[in-house]
């Protein structure tokens, strides 16, 4: 997994609450058996005026000029500023894959849906929770300043604005550690293989009906 230490980048707005993962990446693209290539279809229904199909060349499609990601000022954005409950709904990891593939490394919102939040960390994306009034302030500054950039530092757990305001954020220690180092958490879990085997022995003793039934 890609590590995340710090990121300074252009910020793009996703100014609506309850953005669901169907909106982030519509279902027809979930038929892919690959992990990459979802970026051109990120927010497909909002970004284009036609209905997207898997495998098509998106450069020839009619784009929605009102959608921020299509506007010149937000090109190359690596930080997404969003509203509450971002990433709700389906557990599809294709959502963070699409965000990452498009170039987003960090999402800032007042709250995230639980499964999406977890999926971000597995893909080198840092989801940051900031107070609603702070997010409001950031939206105001973003709209007022073309080329608005933020600096995000995971080691310090801080977001810094262009005029020097600093906002601290919380992130739990294990996820922070894995993201800073870009660790493969399967490898980490397998270091506990003996503990897992010991648990299994006990479980087989207590609840034998859980074993050897489906085969």
């Amino acid at each position: 997994m890609k590590s995340f230490v710090a990121e300074r980048g252009v910020v793009a707005p996703m100014d609506r609450a309850n953005v669901d993962t169907d909106l982030i990446i519509p279902k027809q693209f979930l038929k892919s058996i690959r992990r990459s290539g979802f970026g051109p279809h990120l927010f497909d229904d909002l970004r284009y005026l036609d209905e997207g199909q898997p495998g098509q060349d998106c450069s020839k499609r009619p784009v929605n000029p009102d959608f921020p990601l299509n506007q010149p000022r937000y090109q190359g954005a690596s930080i997404l500023l969003a509203r509450e409950n971002f990433g709700c709904g389906s557990s599809r990891e294709h959502a963070p894959w699409a965000l990452e593939d498009h170039g987003f490394r960090c999402i800032i919102a007042p709250s995230f849906a639980d499964i999406f939040y977890n999926n971000c960390f597995k893909n080198g994306i840092l989801p940051i929770v900031l107070d609603e009034h702070v997010v409001d302030t950031l939206f105001r500054e973003l709209y007022a300043n073309e080329g608005y950039e933020l600096t995000v530092d995971l080691e310090e757990q801080q977001v810094t604005t262009p005029n020097g305001d600093i906002y601290s954020f919380e992130v739990d220690e294990f996820r922070r550690h894995c993201l800073l180092k870009g660790l493969d958490d399967i490898g980490l879990t397998l270091e506990d293989a003996d503990a897992i085997r010991a648990y299994e022995l006990g479980s087989r003793e207590r609840s034998p009906w859980l074993f050897d039934v489906i085969r």
Binding site: R35, S91, R92, E93, P96, I115, N118, N119, K122, N123, F174, D185, I186, L188, T189, L190, D192, A193, I196, E200
Partner: peptide, 18 residues
């Protein structure tokens, strides 16, 4: 509960989740 694909792989490989 539901999980993402990375966790599908994690469960397949370790029978556990963090």
């Amino acid at each position: 509960h539901g999980i993402g694909t990375s966790e599908v792989e994690h469960v397949l490989a370790t029978q556990c989740l963090i």
